[in-house]
Design a binder for these strands. Structure first.
Lengths: 280, 280
DNA sequence: CGTGACATTGACCAACTTCAAGGTGCGTGG
DNA sequence: CCACGCACCTTGAAGTTGGTCAATGTCACG
């Protein structure tokens, strides 16, 4: 299969059964806005729908569009409210005192941006867009009133933060105990589930982030990411061509995540036992 | 200095200028409740003080005492509300599908426990006490009413969750980019700051967790933790005797965290540059 | 068709884990 | 009070994973 074929097929699948993009022969490939057709109505409607304190025009005014490499906000910026990602994708990263940056999360439509600012009213992270994207802004005063007037919003906010905490924990576990292969496998499965949740194909999608982003996020060298991708491809677990990725064998991916976690060598097992013993 | 001397001195310092524990010659040492004299009034009073919806007796009823190895709640337990740790210490951990456990956080007086349950109304983590501890329970209905009636509580809750998110990010960065030495140094400094914030000595304290806990938390082998401790001790950066730890040289600890992050070898620098380049 | 950004591949090496053995402190029961 | 067992901790030697370096490949765009 040529790159071109894979590409077009992927794009077709990515946008599902919609005929709008079918038969497109000339399609911008990587490094271009690609995912801005996603639409995040679910969460947004849940939050806003039940609130009478925000009228339509206010909602419309709060929408803004950004492009690749734009920052939504940066470390140190004053916190003014939170954002809902409507389309596109973004990454958030923190900066160590010497300027080294570390990606903490990737965002897709429906995700909340900026909840890191509640603590000190200053953002501790920078959010940068990976492609053309749009967000909906909810300013702090709105948050406060919505919290009181809309149980849906209140629960949504708490749930969203709580969910992030849970996935952070999983991420920490992955970072600290998983092998490179497992990290990548986990990353791909997470992405896949994310796309499925958004009613997009979970088996064929494109990565809106670079290899370097992935490496940084997973705490490994970019070369290792490349090698793991190559290895997975050779084993027919995935097919990857630059940003275009298809998962061919979910079973294997799942077992990679699972296997190394439990039944690797006997040695590891005994070590796990030791750790478990101590956990009491 | 003998172990006994170090021990008694540490205990004296730990409990500050209070004469109650001065001159105690026979003191239970490790593996015994030790920190349950801490008192977390600040946060608690802030939250509760401004609320008229909770009376004194309700507050008193909501207090509970636990012992070492007790679980506050376990993965899968129904979420009924959050807890404020009043005294003692605890750890939270998640469990992978094969039963391996990973510690996500250690808790000290004033910390909130259980905010992981907002998402699905089920706890995704287990909280287990490291020593005799007491908590104050705030049930969900109270949370909801407090959120609406008490701006202090609302902000406190959001700030606490937001703060946790920020420290999770820092932790992820540490886990993925730091060397073993840096991880341990960071861990010790974090502990130290935590104790200082609680008006306890930040330079002499005891670890309420085992080496295995530390290793698990930092994602490294227990032997490595031991070796790093030994190395720090040899370099006169810390003095450690089992659970009793004194930081002798904050400068060095700080520079360890800082140095390796920025100016290690030229090689690493160039890699960082590469990563930075990609972060745009 | 050249340039620059991004990605891949192979060879080498170091940090950290694993394995194995021994040490320390505490509680318990003779 | 001593001896034993247990949990926890330390230390040394061997073995791997994954990082580093360097060179080459691929794609998009002007």
């Amino acid at each position: 299969m040529t790159a071109r074929q894979l590409r077009v097929m992927s794009v077709d699948k990515l946008y599902g059964t919609s005929n709008t993009y079918r038969g497109v022969t000339k399609m911008k490939t990587s490094y271009q806005p690609q995912n801005d057709y996603y639409n995040a109505t679910t969460l947004l409607d849940t939050y806003m729908g039940s609130s009478s304190s925000i009228n339509q025009s206010q909602q419309r005014d709060s929408h803004r569009v950004f492009h690749r490499r734009d920052n939504l906000f940066s470390v140190g910026n004053y916190f003014e409210g939170i954002y809902l990602l409507r389309s596109g994708s973004a990454k958030s990263f923190i900066t160590s005192r010497d300027g080294e940056e570390h990606i903490t999360k990737f965002y897709y439509p429906g995700d909340m941006l900026g909840i890191d600012g509640f603590d000190a009213h200053v953002h501790t992270q920078t959010v940068r867009f990976l492609e053309t994207s749009s967000v909906c802004f909810i300013k702090e005063s709105q948050i406060n009133s919505l919290i009181q007037t809309s149980p849906d919003f209140r629960n949504g906010l708490l749930q969203s933060m709580s969910h992030t905490l849970a996935s952070d924990s999983a991420m920490m576990m992955c970072l600290s105990t998983c092998s490179s292969e497992q990290k990548v496998a986990q990353f791909l499965l997470d992405l896949s589930f994310g796309f499925s949740d958004r009613n997009l194909s979970g088996s064929e999608f494109m990565l809106s982030m670079t290899r370097t982003d992935i490496a940084n996020y997973l705490g490994m060298a970019i070369e290792t990411v490349s090698r793991v991708f190559a290895s997975f491809q050779q084993r027919n677990i995935i097919a990857v061509k630059l940003r275009y990725l298809s998962i061919l064998d979910f079973e294997s991916l799942n077992s990679i995540v699972a296997i190394d976690n439990c039944s690797q060598t006997l040695a590891k097992k005994s070590n796990i036992k030791r750790v478990k013993q101590a956990l009491n």
